[in-house]
Write a protein that binds this DNA or RNA. Structure first.
Lengths: 136, 136
DNA sequence: TATTTATGTCAGCATGTCTGACGTAAAAAG
DNA sequence: CTTTTTACGTCAGACATGCTGACATAAATA
């Protein structure tokens, strides 16, 4: 069920992404950059759990498409600070808008209490998003 | 979180599958065949939502490895009835054993009530597994 | 100054997905 | 009983996304 739910939620964004010439890998990177603005490449790699080579192909597309901005880090000038451009925000919003109705419907049908349990179990499996960044 | 949880749960089975020379695509097919013994190719395609060409490469490996048995359907002789061989059951068990601890830990940590909510929400997004077969 | 760290890049490979075209056997429709 | 549709199999080629290995550069650190 986890697989099916994740696949179907991700699938909702396919059309929006295809219009931008992007795929699901791009959406995932976009998501984490949107969620943690200014994160470093190493942090992003930690979230995605892919290699830097894989990420850099994806990042190249996002940079070329003007969806993401890459700046030299402030404290440590070796790092790169990643954040969405306005166009990236628009795209991330569009992706979310495509997925939200499905999630909202499931949440509404299940009820608020069920959603709490749902989150609790997912935190057990995926870790608490609130602590994701620090733990990395 | 859905994505991370699904990825991490699926990841647990990587070692077991690699020993059998298989990948995650094989595991998914194996799972549905284990869950719905005797299902037809069309039904399996409906679950996996991939093309028959993609499935057939995976099925070829499973048949060659002796994990799955393919028989001519009884009522409709055009269909193929798929089921696990003993070796397939052993493999499916091994995969499940690799994933179970992670899921069990999350369930235990969240509590029985939370698990109920978790299931309710997933049913909202993925559909009720009890009805998956009929709805297809 | 030497080393380590954070990142980028090239080259090639594996997996899993896709589209398109074609073939066959069996069921269903006429 | 002929025709069409259905369920499946297969070949060929392509794309997306992951991987390993090797190497380069700039900045921090020892």
């Amino acid at each position: 069920m986890l697989f099916v739910a994740a696949r179907d939620v991700a699938g909702k964004s396919a059309v929006v992404l295809a219009q931008a010439g992007l795929g699901r890998a791009h959406a995932r990177a976009l998501h984490f950059i949107a969620r943690y603005p200014g994160l470093s490449v190493a942090e992003l790699l930690g979230f995605l759990k892919i290699t830097k080579q894989s990420l850099n192909r994806v990042m190249g597309d996002l940079l070329a498409g003007g969806f993401v901005e890459r700046k030299t880090g402030m404290q440590d000038r070796r790092t790169r600070s990643l954040q969405l451009t306005p166009a990236g925000k628009v795209l991330a919003d569009a992706v979310w808008s495509a997925q939200r109705p499905m999630i909202a419907a499931a949440f509404k049908a299940a009820g608020q209490e069920a959603v709490g349990g749902y989150r609790k179990v997912l935190i057990g499996m995926a870790g608490d998003p609130e602590r994701w960044r620090k733990n990395s």
